[in-house]
Simulated assay, not measured.
Amino acid sequence: MNQQLPYMLSEKELERYKHPIAVPGMGAGLQETLKNARILVIGAGGLGSPLIQYLSAAGVGVIGIADYGVILEEDLHRQPLFNMQDLRKHKAKMAASRLFSLNPWNKHYPFLLQVRPDNAVQVISGFDLVIDCSQHRATHLVVSDACLLQDKPFITGEVHNWVAWWGGFNMLLDNGSRSGSYRCNELQVDEFRNFDAGAMGATHGATALLMVNEVIKYLAGVPGLAGKMHSFNYLHQQFEKTELALDATGVAAVKERGLLTADEYGLEVVPDVED
């Protein structure tokens, strides 16, 4: 009889995760997969803060948090990871601290910087998966191009008023090819954008949880995120899932030329954070 290999999870972790482990199709093996995952999340605001909270709670072993901003009272309605005493403190640092208190079995690394063309490749290099929660078109393009150069799977999404969208870009498909990039699908994404003023807390939190669920499924090898764009209209309870397009010529052009300048992306560069 073959001797069963010991789990890399400690007894305390097995106890902590006993309920998700008991879910059919999950098990200790998938919990180990989550522990081995290295995910970079760009933006710790309305979409990013609940997303990293549930990634950490789920047991993702390494979470990078890139955000150069500070916590503002006007944003607390959609950033419940933070408290009143955190105002004016750096979101990335406070998020890492909060997540450690939530789950000390994981590693949470704050990056107090703006992800931009001169650092994007270096920042993402140590991670298996990149999730951009900046909700900022120019940043999406920078990160998307950097992920193409390193063949990194890329997830991004946005919430505008009552409508949210998110998609799995540059991800391996069953046939060995990769799904379309964010740049390949900008026109499709633009159909779901609405730049009227206002931001609901519940829609950001709900979207983050839907994205986390898809990330867990992706790590488990369950189809549904790669090459798909999901959208949800919270006002009318309407859900859509569409195929992402692949512009092979455009992807090849990005890989040949590399990253553009910040001006060419339309990215306003902010001064480096003084910690």
Rank of each mutant, 00 (worst) to 15 (best):
M1G: 12
L5R: 11
L5E: 13
E11T: 13
E13A: 01
Y17C: 04
Y17N: 03
Y17A: 03
P20Q: 15
V23I: 15
P24R: 14
G25K: 09
L30N: 02
E32K: 03
T33I: 06
R38Y: 03
I39R: 01
I42M: 14
G43F: 08
G43M: 10
G46A: 15
L47P: 08
L47T: 12
P50E: 10
L51I: 09
I52F: 10
I52H: 12
A57C: 11
A57T: 06
I63W: 04
G64C: 04
I65E: 01
I65C: 09
D67W: 05
Y68K: 11
G69F: 09
E73G: 10
E74R: 14
H77S: 07
H77Y: 13
L81P: 03
F82P: 03
Q85G: 09
D86P: 06
A95D: 11
S97G: 09
R98H: 14
L99P: 10
N103Q: 13
P104R: 10
P110T: 10
L112H: 10
L113Q: 12
Q114E: 02
R116N: 12
P117T: 08
N119W: 04
S125C: 06
G126P: 06
F127M: 04
F127N: 05
V130D: 09
I131T: 03
I131H: 03
S134Q: 11
Q135N: 10
R137M: 13
L141Y: 11
V142M: 01
L148H: 00
K152H: 03
K152C: 02
F154N: 03
F154A: 06
T156I: 02
N161H: 08
A164L: 13
W166Q: 01
G167C: 00
G167Y: 00
F169R: 03
N170C: 04
L172R: 09
C184Y: 02
C184D: 02
L187S: 13
E191P: 01
G198Y: 05
A202C: 13
A202H: 11
T203Q: 06
A206C: 14
A206H: 13
T207G: 05
A208N: 06
N213K: 08
P223D: 03
L225F: 00
A226P: 00
F232V: 11
Y234P: 09
Y234L: 12
L235M: 11
Q238G: 04
Q238A: 14
E240L: 15
A245L: 08
L246P: 02
D247E: 02
V251R: 06
V251H: 01
K255P: 09
K255F: 10
E256G: 12
G258E: 12
L259I: 06
A262V: 09
G266I: 14
V269I: 15
P271K: 00
P271F: 06
